[in-house]
Design a protein around this nucleic acid. Structure first.
Lengths: 206, 206, 206, 206
DNA sequence: TATGAATGAGTCTTCATTCAT
DNA sequence: CATGAATGAAGACTCATTCAT
């Protein structure tokens, strides 16, 4: 039970440092964008030396791509979970709330993604064209089915999805603006939740 | 009547070149972000030499700030036009449609703005804190007045505004994604207009 | 007669600096090889700043390739001049002496070339496979014709050419060794000329 | 009889690893030159880790110097074997053929040596100035004696040696070029042997 | 012996900006 | 007004070598 596990120990340092680096990079990339970020900033943020960063990743781009790949999975998970067997309205409302939660909990990831799409998604096009498109097509079909069954108001499913993305991610991506414009600096963030609940419930209810 | 007017002639060239540069810079900044853009790209795009660019502007930052300043005016114009005397629902619906038009006609401006806010608005904070905040406060008060008068459904006016911004600008800022996900590459863009009209009409109708 | 020629003046600076750089690069590359040479050394040798070097050339490789391209022409010129109509023995002896002269006058070029071939000619293969091969084939045919006409002793023309190259370039490429081994430090360099004259005259005379 | 012999065992591993490293280093140095080679390449080629390489050698330079030292002995052996008592012409012809054999069998060593001399022999000057020079002087005296005895045609013995070196090593050092220029890619390598035999026999025969 | 991890000193290259005309 | 030439500062990446185990 007290077996030495030197191999795993080594692996743990690797694991730990890769995570340190990815977290630091997420911080920096999400704030500065890919071109604006420097390895120096990432290294400082991670508490490692610059060459040590390059011991764990092949280069700046490698770090960025690794982040984006990891992100896609987490990011699309709520959409994947929309259950064709569930109650249509509640499934979609739950999806919207999950997206809002993610914007609140993972604003850096949201901004990283926004940055990438804004630049034309140079490093994500393949991901979007395969994984994302397929998933959206599938879920759009489900929504259409619900509408045809009279369980939802008739709306274009893709524009519906866009509007959920746009309104929820707005609180992460445009946070600087939100903080300025909300009385009390946006501290009372439940306003958004209530408003968006009303908004989407009204548009979806048949 | 045949007086030479060198000063004005110069001024015209100046005017023209400043516009050339700003247009080129908008193109480049909106695609690459501030840090990702280079003076070389802007110069090439403008058809001018690099030192000549710096004859008209003090530096890269100066160009960027000038663009943002110019942008703010145009960008906020539709909001300013919301008429306290008009019909509440129609005023807000018109505002939303104007914003959607702007996203369609001026996507570069939208992306430039999005880039800036994403980075934390380092070069626009003053603008936001004074001009924008004041305007939003003022219009929020108007909306609140309309709600209190029973002419609109009761919604938080600021979150309403955010959702209008988010949903309309989405089509400019996340265009790369929209193009991939919409059947036919998003060519039929009237779907968005119809959907958003329904969305906001439903949430606003008392 | 004293017309100002501003355009040419500009061109002259370019011309002059490109030559400065190429000469400096020849010095450095021929001594250190491609990988061993640094832009710093070339810049110092040329009396220019490092970024200024990169104003005139696209990079280290560009300088190297430019040098090699220029070199090929000069280097093959003596071979090109072998005249099918001339006296066979004298044509070949003249060629050998020209090659020896070039080793004496342009030892840096010889070493640059030797370095490149030693590394497997990574940046010259196309040149060798087209220009050089064609030229050697052509001259080999001429030599074969002379041999068939009984005007030269029967030798393999390609190995003959190789031996001329090897023996003459040796005095440039292996100069460090020659200097050590020749009494008087190889100052009396006419020994080589006399020896090679005898060597090739004996092997070529029918 | 069952005594453990850890020291000798260790020594054997040491011996084996030093040889692995030197062979790998020869491969890499001869292809890339000293500056162009990296410890990583040598380690990979040797199948050892980089720090392990540095356990056996003090550094990159140490490996290189060790290689050159080992090389000198082997390399000069054929020259040493020229027998003052033997038949002059046959001794020298045998020497030439031995050198040609070595170029064929040990091209990496030839290139390593050529690289070093090309760079001005920075790490071999002492060797050349003592061992090599003394040996060449000695053999040159023998050749001179043979010439004075009328057993060889009168040629400068040092230039004779240079030409033997140059012509035979050419097939190793300039192999990339030879492969391109010889019909059939130089597969039929006996042409060189016959040609050089003729060449030197003619120049040496009194 | 052996190696995963780490780094200081380069090395190439980019770029906003300045110089000189 | 305009631009060819030039550069200091910074940035990504390499590599021989050292550290820690």
């Amino acid at each position: 039970m007290n077996d030495a596990q030197p191999v795993k120990k080594v692996s743990r340092i690797q694991q730990r440092n890769r995570e340190l680096i990815l977290d630091a990079a997420l911080e920096v990339f999400s704030k500065q964008g890919f071109r604006g970020a420097t390895l120096d900033q990432i290294a400082t943020q991670a508490g490692l030396s610059k060459p040590n960063i390059l011991y764990y990743f092949e280069g700046k781009e490698d770090i960025h791509v690794t982040l984006l790949n990891q992100l896609m999975d987490t990011w699309l998970d709520p959409l994947r979970r929309i259950d064709p067997e569930g109650d249509p309205l509640e499934e979609l409302m739950r999806y919207m709330h999950l997206k809002l939660d993610m914007s609140r909990e993972y604003p850096r990831e949201s901004r990283l993604f926004a940055n990438e799409i804004l630049q034309g998604a140079p490093r994500m096009l393949p991901h979007l064209e395969t994984g994302l498109k397929q998933l959206v097509d599938e879920k759009a079909a489900i929504i259409t089915g619900w509408i045809d069954a009279g369980k939802l108001a008739p709306v274009d499913p893709r524009h519906l999805i866009f509007s959920i993305w746009a309104t929820t991610q707005h609180y992460a991506d445009f946070d600087a603006q939100v903080q300025i414009l909300m009385p009390g600096g946006g501290a009372n963030s439940d306003g958004a939740r209530g408003y968006l609940d009303t908004l989407f419930r009204k548009v979806l209810t048949p």
